[in-house]
């Protein structure tokens, strides 16, 4: 494992911790898209079906468990916690995420590394992760104002993707048989979705003003 991959994973972990901190400290999930969170929980459940069949490392196994548990806990909290769920911006979170689900699954049936149950679900999770942030970005754009923790949450998620691209570039030059078209192309698409957000995040950081997205 190289430093870029590790940095990426740590950014990913940080984003989840920031989100948990926001929900726990403010007892509020305003500005957070339940649909995006549901998609992420599904992404991890579909991808880590290999948890019991393929052992890579203790690090991988622990991280997989952490991602599954934390993402399902966030969904549970937003739906069931009686204080937190009152702050959910349901009327703003209207992105039709079932469309993303269906499209990702259809693509996974067509483009996969091998036509097996696990490989199809793995490809599905890669495609779904690439677009899962869309309901969140749409919600932020609709609400206009973005609170600090929510802004940082999306920032760390984007940073995680950026480090994964550096990781693939590094692996491409250091490994002899590195070809992961499915993961790399989906990863590029996923990172590109953050470009707009990053631009406004940078502006607000530079001017030291509150993050605001144009309507």
């Amino acid at each position: 494992m190289n430093i870029f991959r590790f940095a990426g994973d740590m950014m990913h972990l940080t984003s989840i911790l920031v989100l948990l901190l926001k929900i726990y400290a403010t007892k509020s999930c305003s500005g957070i898209s339940l649909k995006t969170q549901e998609l992420y929980a599904l992404v991890f459940l579909a991808r880590y079906l290999d948890l019991f069949t393929d052992f890579i490392s203790v690090y991988n196994t622990i991280m997989k468990l952490v991602f599954i548990v934390s993402s399902t806990a966030i969904v549970w909290c937003m739906k069931r916690d009686r204080v937190v769920r009152r702050s959910y911006d349901k009327q703003l979170d209207t992105f039709r995420h079932y469309f993303l689900l269906a499209a990702s699954f259809a693509l996974a049936l067509l483009v996969n590394e091998k036509f097996t149950f696990q490989e199809i679900f793995w490809a599905f999770s890669i495609y779904l992760e690439a677009v899962a942030i869309l309901p969140q970005l749409v919600l932020l754009q609709r609400s206009g104002n973005v609170d600090n923790l929510t802004g940082q949450y999306v920032f760390f998620l984007g940073a995680y993707r950026a480090f994964y691209i550096l990781n693939w570039i590094y692996r491409y030059f250091t490994e002899t048989h590195f070809s992961r078209w499915i993961a790399c192309i989906s990863g590029l698409v996923q990172t590109a979705l953050y470009a707009d957000f990053f631009y406004y995040y940078y502006i607000s950081w530079k001017n030291n003003t509150k993050l605001k997205l144009p309507a």
């Binding site: 991959r5 994973d9 990913h12 991808r47 290999d50 393929d54 890579i56 991988n60 991280m63 997989k64 991602f67 590394e113 091998k114 490989e119 793995w122 994964y164 990781n167 048989h177 070809s179 992961r180 993961a183």
Partner: peptide
């Protein structure tokens, strides 16, 4: 045909 690569990333 080539076997799929092991998914060693998260």
């Amino acid at each position: 045909k080539e076997q799929p690569q092991r998914h060693d990333e998260l």
